[in-house]
Design a protein around this nucleic acid. Structure first.
Length: 226
DNA sequence: GCGACAG
DNA sequence: ATCTTGTCGC
């Protein structure tokens, strides 16, 4: 697939300016209905080792098809700063995507989409960068608040609102007895459509299966480094 | 000043 | 993300 370079900002101020510029390009229109081929992305890291990213090419009817991998040496990594995760992980994701035999129709990211202080979580950033539809599924909240308490029942969802009251995504209970997931559109998909897409993914445990596989593969790949 | 803070 | 033991529960 087509992979524009992902420059590393030399400062947080530069990264901030970049986010503000790119956030203007995010589009929240579109449905993922009919999408069959997606790439689920996750990363694993341990100090002293490279950051490992994996892209699981996943077909909604055939299951996992391929696992692409990307490595970035620790010395080359942007530091982890809440709100700037994409500058740290996205370069590795681009490598992992490059290793796929076929381009996905959409991306599924471990992190926020527009539920971000500047509207550019990692799912939005990568979506805009590659001009691909993308959805963020985060395991904890970065920005925003729940409109009301989330019911315990599996499948329930409650809107995630900005401090000003604008909808950013959903808290979503994927299974009974698990902590919520935070689903927000990344790029080229609407709020409700992003949730509908995630709800349509096979989910045996807390995480949708494609992301769970990516998580497992990333952990495996990290261990296999030594 | 205090609290919050994806991975 | 990782560091970490046992422990509660299906």
């Amino acid at each position: 697939m087509d992979l524009p370079p992902f420059p590393k900002p030399s400062s947080l101020e530069e990264a901030l300016r970049l986010q503000e510029a790119l956030a203007k390009r995010v589009r929240l229109e579109g449905s993922l209905e009919g999408v069959k081929l997606l790439a689920a992305l996750d990363a694993s890291h341990k100090r002293g080792k490279p950051l490992v990213a994996v892209a699981v090419l996943y077909h909604l009817e055939r299951g996992p098809l391929f696992v692409g991998q990307g490595l970035v040496p620790e010395e080359a990594l942007f530091p982890y700063v809440p709100g700037f995760l994409s500058f740290r992980e996205a370069p590795a994701y681009l490598q992992a995507l490059k290793a796929l035999p076929e381009a996905p129709e959409a991306l599924l990211l471990d992190g926020q989409g527009i539920a971000h202080p500047r509207g550019l979580g990692i799912a939005s950033h990568l979506g805009v960068h590659l001009d691909l539809p993308s959805v963020g599924v985060a395991k904890s909240l970065l920005y925003g608040r729940l409109e009301r308490p989330l019911p315990q029942e599996a499948g329930s969802a409650v809107r995630l609102l900005s401090p000003e009251g604008c909808p950013l995504g959903y808290a979503y209970r994927s299974r009974t007895g698990v902590r919520p997931l935070y689903v927000s559109p990344g790029h080229r998909v609407g709020l409700e459509e992003a949730l509908a897409f995630v709800k349509g993914l096979p989910t045996r445990f807390r995480l949708p299966e494609p992301l769970r596989l990516a998580h497992l593969e990333a952990g495996k790949a990290l261990k296999a480094l030594d």
